[in-house]
Amino acid sequence: MPEIKKYSESELVMLLKQHEQHAFGYLYDSYSGALFSVILSIITDRELAGDVLQEVFVKIWRQIDSYDDSKGRLFTWMLNIARNASIDMVRSKGFQNSRQNRELTENVYDSSGTTQTNTDKIGLRKIVQTLKEEYKVLIELSYFQGFTQEEISRMLNIPLGTVKTRLRNALVQLRELVKT
């Protein structure tokens, strides 16, 4: 973001905890684009993604008191809110229906599948695509689709211990890719 930072993170957190309107304005200006890209890496539909972004800011407003800076950075906390909200949306019944409709339409009129690959071209998910297949599938299922390791173990028919180890290795590789 090109904006000049007006607040240090601790100042910003303090103002957010006081529910200062201008602090939320600043938060929006600074982070809405980054959070929107996180949402778009899970939800293709921009209109729905916009709804989720609004929901994310409302959640930040409501839950800012529970943010503990000793446990991590503010953005990480917001990122996880955005990811969870997006996964919740994808799993909601309304989204399933709209996606079924869209897939039906696409199958009939558009076989290029451009909208389906959209999420793969954004942010962290784009980086995940460069991992080898057995790592990619684990991060895909756990991080972007929100399945537990037990669920993934059953889905892929891999022992839980293997899932755990392999995911850890995948994340170490991912860290190196994110750094650059």
């Binding site: 973001m1 939320f24 809405s32 684009g33 996180v38 916009g50 800011f57 950075r73 942010g123």
Partner: peptide, 26 residues
Amino acid sequence: ASLEQNALNSAVAPPPALKETVMAAL
């Protein structure tokens, strides 16, 4: 920090009108 930077680098601007909606919701 690197996650944050990555997200900021790949930021996608939401529709401009959304800020007003979000602030009103807040």
